[in-house]
Write a protein that binds this DNA or RNA. Structure first.
Lengths: 337, 337
DNA sequence: TTGTACGCGTTATCAT
DNA sequence: ATGATAACGCGTACAA
């Protein structure tokens, strides 16, 4: 088909609009127009150009197009923890929806030591937006984005800055409601399995628990620190359960709840008869038959949808005021409460 | 700091090298050199320029730089299934390592209906490489990449094409070795829980099982089709176990093995006393205490490392012959065999 | 060591 | 409707 002749050991250059123009006997502009929807161009000519382009293997170069001052269609996603089931599910959904909108997500692993420099380097690309999923971002990076007029949307820890939009789950309402439900069932001795000390989500989820307990004239009997993983939840729960007599264990996330549930069963505790174990997030494993975990859903669909809505609004009106959209949680009452 | 004045409702333009040059009272080339390692430039001048650049918030525009004919530093990753634990763990690792090498991964969700058009669109960017993780790729896309001289590296289903490098797990050796181990333990009535009919990995893993059985004068007693998920494995195993008397169930992946393990326990079967249940991949959940699954490790670290090696070699020698690197599996003998 | 001038591939503008 | 030409922002060969 193509008369492209490979030169040994040398990288062949990309086919350009100029080459297509020559091959089709038209001007370069005509080629550009042939690939621009709604541009003035004779239908027959457009068809002809597209044929030639297909044979030569021509595609407009998105880099050169992005230089024009329009949008680059590149969106960076900063992922706090690529090993967390919730974050990966979240990013999976987000990537799919961005793809559908013709936005191309560049992923940055926020877990590595080089995360800060990585984001600095990615900012060399004129991004359409920067989306934060969990993790924390230095104030410096935030101000850089503001300066470059790169829209930032944060999901997880809210960022208080003039041009940053936030999507925020009503964490404390979720744990409050869950705690109230457990109290209504007759639970009175509550334990809380917290996440790492500096995790915003853990602290605020605990806040909801305390609120509900206080309203009922109760208080927390025991608390232990975990690391948001299954293994961490397993060992933390083992310690907590062996030293405290409680009848309800609220975990700051599902991964730890799954670990805690296993620990409780290993210790001969009947769940939910002797002990309630509940989590937060409703990750896919929570519904696995061997866990059937009662939890608070932190809905990914709704969060991702809102991120895309905010992105659209921000791109339409770059100077608009920052917004914070709150996402409602849902109680998922399965078999462990 | 900066004297940038925001214009209401209008997106501020990026700071360019020209602006820095003017502000610093030097030529535009000097600014370029100030950000190019090893370029001839007076140290004092470079320092001065960098200071001014920092104040103005200047960064070289990677889009314009990529136009120069060098590398774009953009790498696309096509992910077969963003919902599979193995694939997401794989991609997480890959993203982190690419970040460390200053390569920026653009993710494409191979699961959606729009996957084919998505990859077409991403090819508008002059990619340094395209990495395939699972899923399948149309021959058309492959030939396009070859035409554009975009290196392709496939992990999962190997691609037979002149310029495509492959990283391939020795699936059948893994299942063969596992089957031999079970036979040596006295298992004689084997069942196989397969993945979707068109999945390369499932078919080849089954091949290893059959090979080992044949060598021992045995044959498969039962087989059932699953969908590579926990829920699918659970229901498929339930059917299979209720209709066939077997003492070993080999599952095409860990997710199904976890589902099968749960099903077996629910049916009152003692694992491993009455029945061996084994998986493939060694996903993180396989080592969770409640499963402690015996499985065949499909090592992510090694695969990712080899992908990066192949990428490096391919970038160094674009015209080199395609290679296929094989990855050895490892038997992980836990508590279910 | 430094500045000038050109090319990268595209889209947008402006005549025609 | 179409073709010439000017940006876009950068790196770099070349001349000084």
């Amino acid at each position: 088909m193509s008369d492209y002749i490979p030169v040994h050991g040398q990288r062949p250059r990309r086919v350009t609009a100029r080459m297509v123009a020559e091959a089709a006997g038209v001007s370069r502009s005509a080629v550009s127009r042939a690939f621009t929807d709604g541009a003035y161009l004779d239908d027959k000519k457009r068809t002809k150009i597209r044929e030639v382009a297909a044979i030569l293997g021509y595609k407009p170069n998105a880099l050169a197009a992005g230089l024009q001052g329009g949008r680059s269609h590149l969106v960076a996603i900063f992922v706090g923890d690529m090993r967390s089931p919730y974050d990966t599910a979240f990013v999976g959904q987000l990537v799919g929806e961005l793809n559908a909108l013709n936005k191309w997500p560049i992923l940055i692993d926020g877990g590595g030591q080089r995360a800060a420099t990585a984001i600095e380097d990615v900012l060399r690309y004129p991004l359409d937006a920067l989306i934060l999923r969990g993790g924390s971002m230095s104030a410096d990076i935030v101000s850089q984005c503001t300066k470059y007029a790169i829209p930032m949307i944060s999901s997880g820890r809210p960022i208080e800055a003039p041009d940053v939009d936030n999507v925020c789950c009503r964490h404390s309402d979720g744990t409050k409601e869950m705690t109230e439900t457990l109290i209504r069932q007759g639970r009175t001795r509550f334990g809380f399995l917290a996440g790492p000390a500096d995790f915003y989500s853990s602290a605020i989820r605990k806040g909801g628990v305390l609120e509900a307990l206080k309203a009922a004239g109760l208080s927390l009997v025991a608390e232990s620190l975990g690391d948001y993983t299954v293994a961490g939840g397993h060992s933390s729960a083992k310690q907590l359960l062996s030293s405290h007599a409680i009848d309800a264990l609220i975990c700051a996330n599902d991964a730890m709840a799954i670990g805690a549930l296993t620990a409780a069963r290993e210790m001969g505790l009947a769940v939910p008869k002797d002990l309630s174990v509940v989590g937060f997030d409703d990750i896919s494993m929570a519904s696995w038959p061997m866990f059937d975990l009662t939890t608070v859903r932190n809905p990914i669909d709704a969060s991702v949808t809102e991120i895309l809505n905010l992105l659209e609004r921000r791109l339409a009106t770059p100077g608009k005021q920052s917004e914070t959209v709150f996402i409602d949680t849902q109680l998922v009452l399965r078999a462990t409460h």
